[in-house]
């Protein structure tokens, strides 16, 4: 039986990958681009509510949001809990708090981690500020976590 030599065998590279890219769209795309620049953008609805993180549509009316506007990188904790032993997937490897945080200028709150050191330093109403990643990738994780802002 003849064995085909290498030159006769059709070859093609094979890499396991998604062969498409996906856009995050006109609202989240700007939001993530903003995070890469250390800014936070919210979506203003027709009724004047500012949604952070932004949505393309007002969840109450279904209408498209009107504009993206910049909000603060500091905000107020509206509710929180504490994780003593973080899972490997958690944003921080040491004990931290989860919180809903309403950024200054926003009407809704975003979920993120608070690096407070201990639950005694967590409280509803506490002030926190975003800590941005040194090497942003255009994702929600470009905010590493929030740090407590000490009252002056």
């Amino acid at each position: 039986m003849a064995t085909p030599d290498d030159s006769e065998v059709l070859k093609a590279p094979y890499a396991l990958q998604y062969t498409y890219t996906r856009s995050t769209g006109p609202v989240l795309g700007h939001f993530f681009a903003g995070l890469m620049a250390g800014r936070v953008l919210g979506a203003r609805t027709a009724t004047g509510r500012v949604l952070v993180p932004p949505a393309e549509y007002d969840p109450d009316t279904g209408e498209a949001v009107e504009a993206l506007i910049e909000v603060g990188t500091a905000g107020t904790v509206t509710t929180w809990t504490w994780v003593d032993a973080p899972a490997e997937s958690a944003p921080l490897s040491r004990a931290f708090g989860w919180a809903l945080i309403r950024l200054d200028g926003a009407d809704t709150a975003m979920l993120h981690a608070v690096d407070a050191g201990s639950p005694e330093r967590m409280a509803t109403g506490m002030r926190v500020r975003a800590r941005f990643a040194a090497e942003p990738r255009g994702a929600i994780t470009d905010i590493v976590c929030f740090d407590p802002v000490e009252a002056s």
Partner: peptide, 30 residues
């Protein structure tokens, strides 16, 4: 609790992997 995090918003929440018990705790504290 971690698997359930993947039902959340795929862009703004799921990449943080919040566990289901923590989310229920946020509701409880509220």
């Amino acid at each position: 609790p971690i698997i359930l995090s993947q039902q959340l918003d795929p862009y703004t929440v799921a990449p943080l992997f919040p566990d289901a018990i923590s989310l229920a705790a946020l509701q409880a504290r509220a």
